[in-house]
């Protein structure tokens, strides 16, 4: 039930911005001329970099001020992993790395739902969990990363 996907071009500025946002200044994420970068075949990406594909995801729900022709999509209650507005929270995130992503790659991103389940929480009432599985393939069709996001919807706000 995967959708047809969308393209996510991996450019040097985006990798630099993302690396900075996780306070990372290692040269392999920013400087193409550093010997360490050359040793890994050019600029590579931090472990959680593929999250930036949100910028290119047409129906991404967590960007309410993005200019759009159509109304912003709504996230269905309990659906789709990865947190959400209101009482949706991001419960877990898992990545499998199959092949390095380099600056200059154009990734095709496809998403499909995974498992869903319920459990009784201690603090937030009934908890509804759901998985979303995202695959990132490069321009040669090589699967680079599989990401599994687990979202949870709670009945009331969780006090922490």
């Amino acid at each position: 039930m995967a959708d047809e996907g969308f393209e996510f071009p991996v450019d040097r500025t985006q990798v630099m911005l993302f690396a900075r946002s996780v306070l990372d200044i290692r040269p392999e994420f920013s400087d193409p001329n550093d010997p360490a970068t050359k040793a890994v075949g050019g600029i590579v990406t931090p472990p959680t970099f593929v999250q930036c594909s949100a910028h290119w995801q047409p129906n991404y729900p967590l960007d309410l001020t993005r200019p759009r022709k159509d109304p912003a999509p709504q996230r269905a209650a309990g659906g789709g992993g990865g947190g959400g507005l209101g009482r949706g929270l991001h419960a877990e995130q898992h990545y499998e790395y199959h092949h390095p992503i380099h600056v200059g790659d154009t990734l095709t991103v496809t998403q499909k739902p995974g498992k869903s389940w319920e459990k009784e929480g201690r603090r937030g009432g009934k908890l509804k969990f759901s998985e979303s599985i995202t695959e990132y393939r490069n321009q040669d069709g090589v699967l680079c990363v599989t990401a599994t996001s687990v979202g949870v919807q709670t009945e009331r706000a969780v006090d922490q």
Partner: peptide, 23 residues
């Protein structure tokens, strides 16, 4: 992402095969 930085500082930028967390 910050925890991932600990991993790449320790292991280098291309060593990871899997990385998963619970929040």
């Amino acid at each position: 992402g910050l925890t991932g930085r600990m991993l790449t500082d320790w292991l280098g930028p291309v060593a990871l095969k899997k990385y998963g967390v619970r929040f």
